[in-house]
Amino acid sequence: MISKANGWEHLQPQCITAELHNYPEQITGAVKHLIDIAKSKDQEIFVAYGDCGTGGQLDAMLEAEGVERVPGSHCYEFFSGGEVFEQFNEAELGTFYLTDFLTRHFDRLVIRGMGLEDKPELMPMYFGHYKKLLYIAQTNDPKLQEMARQAADKLGLEYEYYYGGTGVLGDALLSFNQRIAVELKD
């Protein structure tokens, strides 16, 4: 979305499945696999993924590989920016975050991904300490806002909305793009 909006046709986004958020021990290996492929093609690399529960292993691997990453511990954090995210966290520790992507795929990644479709009785074990669902939006889309509100209802949480746009991720990609443009010129 960011690449398209900026006309960065030379950037080739490569994705790992978002379902790895439920298996964070597999994130580092999955990212490393994509880095290996990109390096074999002599491509410049930028990782747009949070630590997301790897316990610092993602950053350790990236440092060894000499690859830059967007700052932030959680992937939803870089859509709001670290300081704003910290304020959200301090205001209510029990906040469950959604992005545009997570809102679109809420049923697949959260309801079915966490087994709640077949075992709704597990809801209190997963979400018993959560109070609020905060949708950090990348686009101003009323349909997604309604879907996020419905997601909050399903989880029995208060609903809040925050428009973050592309946040720190947009800035980081712009910076990466400028850097490689200079390197290509040189």
Binding site: N22, M114, G115, D118, K119, Y126
Partner: peptide, 8 residues
């Protein structure tokens, strides 16, 4: 087994 089964 996965997390949901463990929780059950």
């Amino acid at each position: 087994l996965f997390v949901p089964e463990v929780l059950s």
